[in-house]
Structure formats: C-alpha cells, structure tokens
Design a protein around this nucleic acid. Structure first.
Length: 424
RNA sequence: GGGGGAAUACUCAAGCGGUCAACGAGGGCAGACUGUAAAUCUGCUGGCUUAGCCUUCAGAGGUUCGAAUCCUCUUUCCCCCA
C-alpha cells in the first residue's frame, strides 16, 4: 500500500517534498515523528502524529518515535506567541517515563525490518560539545535562513530568546543524526513543523549531500471551530488518572457527524472500503451514530483496553439510556467508583440526612456544588437537576434511604454533567 | 503642555433624574424536540432568609425626597492640536 495515496484518501496531507513517493516506493524507509515531553501524559491532540506513524507502519515502512528529552529542555517556538518557561531536567525525565509507554500502545515493535523504534534525543545530545556543534553544524544554516522561518518571524515583535531561536538547529541535528545512524529519510509532523523539518533537510544536504524528505499533516480542526481535544474542563489525556476512560470514551462519542467522518479516517486503521461502508450505514440510520460508536470503541480499547471500553459503554448506557434509575440501584460499589473516577466528588456528613435534607441545602451549603442558592433554585425549577437519575424539584428532600450502596448520591445537571456526593 | 471624548454585568452595547438588577446582541446554562447530534423553539443568566429584601453601572465625595443618569475630585483609556 502506498503511503502517499493512503494519506490522500484519509485527507491527512498538508504538504510534502517532491520525490517522496518515489523514495517510499523503493523499499522500507525509516521515518520519524518527534514528541516533546512537555507534560506527564500525551493528550488526544498528540494522537494525530501518532496515527501518522501507525499508518506509515501499516504501509510497510519503519516508524521512529523520537522523544525530545533534549529538545524538551529547549522549547519549540512553533505556534507559540510567547517565550515558554523552561522545564527542569527532572520534570522532563519524569514526563518521558510516562509518555513512552503510551507511545508503545500504538506501534508494532515486532515486525522485522519495519519494527518501530523509540529514541530519545538526549542520548546523542548529552555528549555533544558546544563548540564542535557550532563549528560542524551551525556553520551550515545561515542566520538569514533561520530568521525567515515563520516560527521566528511570528515572534520578532514579542521577542524570542536565543534558546528558542536555536530550536530549529537542534531539531535539524536530530534529523541529521537519525539519517546517519538509522537511514531515516523522512520526517513527519503537523503543518506547524514544516519550518523545523526543512531546516533538517537543509542541514543534511549541506553536511552529507543526502536527499531527505518532509511530510506534514493539516492541523485537525473541528466543525464548530473549537480546538480538537479540548473540552471546557481542559485537555483529554491518554493517562487514565488524568482523564478517566469514561471521559475519554465520551469525548469521541460526542463528536459531530462531520467531525466523526474526518476522524474515523485519521484515528482508525479501517481501510477505505470499510470506512465508506460505515458512511453508508451511518447515512441510512444516522440516529444509531455508527461512526461515533466505531470511533470511540476503537480508540478507547486501543488506549485503555477492552475492559475499560466495555465498562465505559456500560456506564454510558446507564447514564444516557432511558429509565435507568433502577439500573443504577443495582450497580456495585466497585463499578460505581470505577465509572466515576475523575468525576468531581463531594463529601458530606451522613448524619445530616438523618431527618431528610432539602436538596437546595445539600447542593449549596453542604457540598458547594453551586455557590448560589438562587442559581440552584433556577436550575431545579427548570427541571435540570437529577439525583440518582430522578428529577428533583426545589422542595425535594434527600434521605439516607436514597444513598446508593448506603454511601453515594449521583448528582446530575442537564444531560451530561455528573458529580458524586459521598456520605461518610 | 492645550482641547475633546469615554469608562455599564462574561463580551459587545443601550441608557441622558424616578416605571433600572438595568433594552438589545453574542456567549453561557437549562428545558422541549432529537441521535448523549445539528438546526429550531422556550426559559434563565448579581446575591439572599425570594409576593419581598440587599449590593451593583471605574473610584471617592456632593446635589436631590430620589442618581447608572447632574456636579466635583481621582484613576485609566481614546482622539485632536502642539
């Protein structure tokens, strides 16, 4: 299968250097994508470059995931308006230790010559001497060339440190190093990486006369204009401790039809015929939301495992199904807690329920879920609040007998916002 | 340095002495419909012990029975002339 054609129908091509297709056609070609360890987990925005590597490997080539243990210490100015705070060495090392296993979930490390590799650029940068680096590599990129990059130009007004300015040279050296040691002939990235990648191409041409290539993918945008991977409560992370599998699953479940069509091509390895078939099925019975189901199933089980997916599905059925208050009564404490891991939890003293507690009091003074009683009454009056999946009015009393498993209350605002109240 | 204008709730933006907790729009939240969608329609969007009360219209004073609205000073911003 041809990688370029594959990317074409998946709508993932933003730009690429001429002649790439011929190179890829000539045999297994190593290519790399860089990941900066700026946080202690990848988030779903990082899934785009990860999937590029996955598709790349499926097209018969060798993917290399480069973790920027060195570049993470510098900071990439691309797409950033302001200078960034430097991360400490400890922090970067910790982040890498968290991110590496996440990358391993996606790639195949046991498929002969196209087995994936994970490398860390600190391994080659830690031994490099500053003077020889400037002499051997700095000499090949002119200041004029480096200043012309968008990432630098965009910062000429607000300011850019030499540290961040030097980033493109550091990244260029990565490409050079991988080309020399692993025969890497292609660097892949988001469209914001074009400048950094071409700097690498330039450096390799000047130092070794080798011809190497760039491939960039468009930044994924959502049809409603919001940023992909962000919710009002922040990023969706791959780390289940930072974003529960349920939240993760729900993110994909909630994407619009248009977005689902785009995403299923990017985030699954289903082939063109399979995807077209899903489109057809979806159009025939749109209410079944086949695309969203397929998306969330495939990505959730890949990242969090089949069990976590099944769990999320089960929970979602309880939360979004009809007349499910009785199902909620049957759920075990263990399942209940697993489901709502990551959901806001509020503790109350069990004794206050002794003679029944007004729901407004419960939600304001005793839990602080709402700060204003007025707001709470408004929501209650507009039928927006449920406890244990049963709608509440403002005169509703909460009793000990209402506790699930003798301990919990499931609070719900609107259709999608849940919290649990734990009575001790 | 001289002259003029402006500051209103999350944002934009009305208001020009009482009927102003403050028009309208956007955003947000919720309800109906639906597919946990989109579109549409409806309600809400300062606080409270909610037929009422309290605190708000840059800040501090003042005039008045009564001020977001008038006056004075302060702060900040904009424009014009030097």
């Amino acid at each position: 299968m041809d990688f370029i054609n594959e990317m074409k129908w998946r709508d993932m091509i933003h730009d690429s250097t001429p002649g790439l297709q011929e190179v890829l056609g000539s045999g297994i070609t190593p290519a790399y994508v860089g990941f900066d360890p700026t946080a202690d987990s990848l988030h779903i925005g990082n899934l785009v470059p990860i999937m590029l590597l996955v598709h790349y490997q499926n097209c018969g080539h060798q993917p290399i995931a480069l973790i920027g243990g060195a570049t993470g210490l510098i900071g990439d100015p691309s797409g950033k308006n302001t200078e960034r705070k430097l991360l400490t060495l400890d922090k970067v090392e910790y982040n890498i230790s968290r991110i590496k296993p996440q990358l391993e979930l996606f790639l195949d490390f046991d498929s002969g010559k196209k087995s994936a590799k994970i490398v860390n650029n600190i391994d080659w940068f830690k031994n490099i001497n500053t003077i020889s680096f400037f002499r051997d590599y700095g000499k090949h990129l002119t200041l004029n060339y480096m200043l012309a990059k968008d990432s630098v130009q965009n910062r000429m007004q607000s300011g850019i440190s030499f540290t961040e300015f030097s980033y493109q040279l550091i990244q260029a050296y990565d490409f050079h190093h991988l080309n020399k040691t692993m025969g890497c002939k292609l660097q892949i990235g988001g469209s914001d990486q074009w400048g950094n990648i071409t700097a690498g191409i330039e450096l390799i041409k000047k130092t070794t006369n080798n011809k190497v290539h760039a491939f960039t993918t468009s930044l994924l945008t959502k049809s409603d204009g919001s940023k992909f991977g962000k919710t009002e409560s922040g990023n969706i992370w791959l780390d289940p401790k930072k974003s529960s599998p349920y939240k993760f699953y729900q993110y994909w479940m909630n994407v619009s039809d248009d977005d689902a069509k785009k995403m299923i091509k990017i985030f699954t390895v289903l082939n063109e015929a399979e995807i077209n078939n899903l489109f057809k099925l979806h159009e025939k019975e749109p209410h079944l939301r086949i695309l969203q189901n397929e998306l969330s199933k495939r990505i959730t089980s890949r990242v969090h495992g089949g069990d976590a997916y099944a769990q999320s599905l089960k929970v979602s059925n309880i939360l979004f199904g009809k007349n499910t208050s009785h199902l909620l009564q049957e759920i075990s404490e263990e399942d209940f807690l697993m489901v709502f891991e990551g959901v806001d939890q509020y503790d109350i003293d069990k004794s206050i329920l002794q003679s029944g507690l007004n729901v407004v009091e419960l939600l304001t003074t005793h839990t602080g879920i709402f700060k204003s009683k007025g707001e709470t009454r408004r929501l209650l009056d507009s039928n927006a609040i449920s406890i244990n999946k049963i709608k509440c009015k403002s005169d509703c009393l909460i009793l000990k007998a209402n506790l699930l498993n003798g301990k919990y209350l499931l609070f719900q605002k609107g259709k999608k916002h849940y919290s649990i109240i734990c009575a001790q």
